[in-house]
């Protein structure tokens, strides 16, 4: 597309089309003072839509519409009918990394073409610029699952977690991959993953992500006693050297609640009392948990 904007009325190939103005009504609310270019382009887009025209020029026009507003889902939808086009979407993805339409469009095209190409590399490039881009991670999960590309994922994630142990999106993706590799989550897998999480916890004990991961691995699919035991031991060891670490408290509290013996319920109450003191912003919640434990203890 040329940098100099030529109005559609001065483009010979559009001579036969009568533009359609937006029907905003006589006195609209939230009217936008569109630029001339925006208004002109949309007027011709409306005409193309109305005539349901399928053509090269219509394709070129949707390109102009999307360049003006990448969130125009109507143009994206129309484009899916027009052509299968990955190169175009590549460029738009790089420019519009936080837009629902562009990512879903990639998915729709990949579903049709079944040619995954270097899709994971493109997603990795975007994640390397914005490591927590939600859309990019959603798309990565879809691609990995749809095209059965699981083999390189753990290695890829090791690198990301090494770069930033606090990248929760990477931890989430690890759970996604592990749950695929061992859907029933055997004790062996659970213990290995808890060990992996604690390696990271020992580097930075106040990083919530690996704590949530370890807890998630232990509790998923009904939970496993062996995994909870490992979790408990890990948390107790950590609390010996960092007695006011809130995450160690959370995990121990969950272990105690799950066990439900009187001794553990009493210990849980002490943990809640501690959290009320040094996790004050959540004070009311810890008081509620304590109330619930006390009730269970009385029964």
């Amino acid at each position: 597309m040329s940098n100099i904007y030529v109005p559609f009325k001065d483009r010979s190939e559009w001579n036969d089309v009568t533009p359609i103005e937006q029907d905003d009504g006589p006195n609209p609310v939230v009217p936008i003072a569109y630029t001339d270019k925006f208004r002109d382009t949309m007027n011709y887009f409306r005409a193309v839509l109305k005539n349901n025209e399928i053509s090269e020029r219509a394709l070129a026009l949707t390109d102009e519409v999307i360049n003006l507003n990448a969130a125009n889902y109507t143009a994206w939808y129309y484009r899916r009918d027009l052509k299968e086009e990955m190169e175009y979407t590549d460029a738009m993805t790089e420019e519009n990394q936080k837009n629902y339409q562009v990512w879903y469009h990639r998915q729709a095209i990949l579903e049709k073409s079944r040619d995954v190409g270097s899709e994971l590399e493109l997603v990795a490039r975007i994640i390397s610029e914005d490591s927590k881009n939600y859309h990019a991670w959603v798309h990565r999960q879809w691609v990995v699952k749809e095209f059965n590309l699981w083999s390189g994922e753990l290695q890829y994630l090791d690198g990301l977690i090494k770069d930033d142990v606090r990248n929760n999106s990477a931890w989430n993706h690890r759970f996604f991959v592990i749950s695929h590799l061992d859907p029933s989550l055997s004790d062996k897998t659970r213990l290995e993953e808890i060990k992996y999480a604690f390696t990271s916890i020992n580097l930075a004990p106040n990083n919530e992500s690996p704590w949530n991961y370890a807890k998630g691995v232990a509790s998923a699919k009904g939970g496993s006693d062996a995994a909870y035991q490992a979790l408990k031991e890990g948390a107790e060891a950590l609390l010996k050297r960092a007695p006011v670490n809130p995450f160690g408290h959370y995990v121990l509290l969950d272990c105690c609640t799950r066990s439900g013996t009187n001794q553990d319920l009493e210990r849980g109450i002490v943990l809640c009392d501690n959290l009320v003191k040094f996790d004050g912003i959540r004070k009311k919640y810890w008081e509620f948990r304590k109330q619930k434990l006390s009730k269970d203890l009385a029964h």
């Binding site: 936008i32 003072a33 569109y34 630029t35 925006f38 949309m42 003006l68 969130a71 125009n72 109507t74």
Partner: peptide
């Protein structure tokens, strides 16, 4: 016109 991007 900065709201062009919220036209949808």
């Amino acid at each position: 016109s900065s709201f062009d991007c919220l036209d949808a």
